[in-house]
Design a protein around this nucleic acid. Structure first.
Lengths: 158, 158
DNA sequence: TATTGTTATACTCTATAACTATA
DNA sequence: TATAGTTATAGAGTATAACAATA
């Protein structure tokens, strides 16, 4: 059997631990909410990417989000099976596949983003609105100046 | 081949993504530094726990840090093999094993904590000291009020 | 020859379940 | 019978490497 829940702030000595615990605090309920829509965090991340950059090809998506090419194949497969996105060969280079979000995909993404926002509001409920804005600003500032990152997994999301 | 490094702040729309990216920004180089000491992030986490609570038994450590009992066995095995900690039966209940950090373990932990601190300073180099303090305060405040968490993995550290 | 995507496989990490020894 | 720890196994998630199609 898995251990009981943990006192939230215990043992978080290093800043990295704080990042991790807050990420988990947001990731776990987000993943549960997404599951009710038939989505996973990686699928949600790809859909978010697709929302703004329709004609990007698999490799570009993977490079932008740190998803391995072979993993991208499986993710886009899932999106296609669910009718949330579709592939088409790029005209200028028929090796490459452009991935496009479908109207159904947009509708599902809209609901998913709402759920993710709700979770995030709940996770940061300890902060006043001004404090929350301040936190986000500091996080962005730190990340912008942080050392360059190696490739990441796709498990990142709200 | 794995994809190239990612522009740090790109795509981090949700706060959860910021947490994740900053955690990774600190976790990856920390893991690399620990490896040079023969440690891993989970071992580092357990040693940190042991530093302050010597007589805790495996189950307690696991419960406090969200590490599965069977995973704890493997971790303490590794610490014992390296001479960094040792087990002994608890007098009052010989089913239970108290885990104690050794002097060698303390020395190694001291170096590990120095390395982790250096990484963290580097990760947060974009923030002025006052901003950094402010960030930590906001993170702690948010975490203290966040919804109760399910068990965690041991991958959390500086 | 190099590159995109694909496939099949291997690896890492963690959880699950059955077992032992104590209680 | 219940609990701490152990062991062996399975599962999820991801990466690696070889292959096909195209450039």
């Amino acid at each position: 059997m898995a251990p009981d829940p943990i006192p939230a702030a215990e043992e978080a000595e290093f800043v990295g631990q704080l990042f991790f615990r807050l990420w988990r605090a947001s990731h776990t309920p987000t993943a549960e909410a997404l599951e009710r829509l038939g989505l996973t965090p990686p699928l949600f991340a790809v859909l978010n990417h697709l929302r703004d950059r329709e004609a990007s090809i698999q490799q570009q998506i993977g490079a932008a989000m740190g998803i391995d090419p072979s993993t991208m194949v499986a993710l886009v497969d899932q999106l296609e099976r669910g009718g949330l996105a579709k592939r088409r060969p790029r005209a200028q280079d028929r090796r490459a596949r452009e991935v496009l979000i479908t109207p159904k995909g947009r509708r599902k993404l809209r609901r998913a983003r709402e759920l993710a926002q709700e979770v995030e509001t709940d996770v940061l409920r300890g902060l006043a609105p001004a404090e929350r804005d301040q936190l986000v600003a500091l996080l962005r500032q730190a990340l912008a100046a942080a050392p360059p990152q190696p490739p990441w997994t796709a498990a990142e999301d709200g």
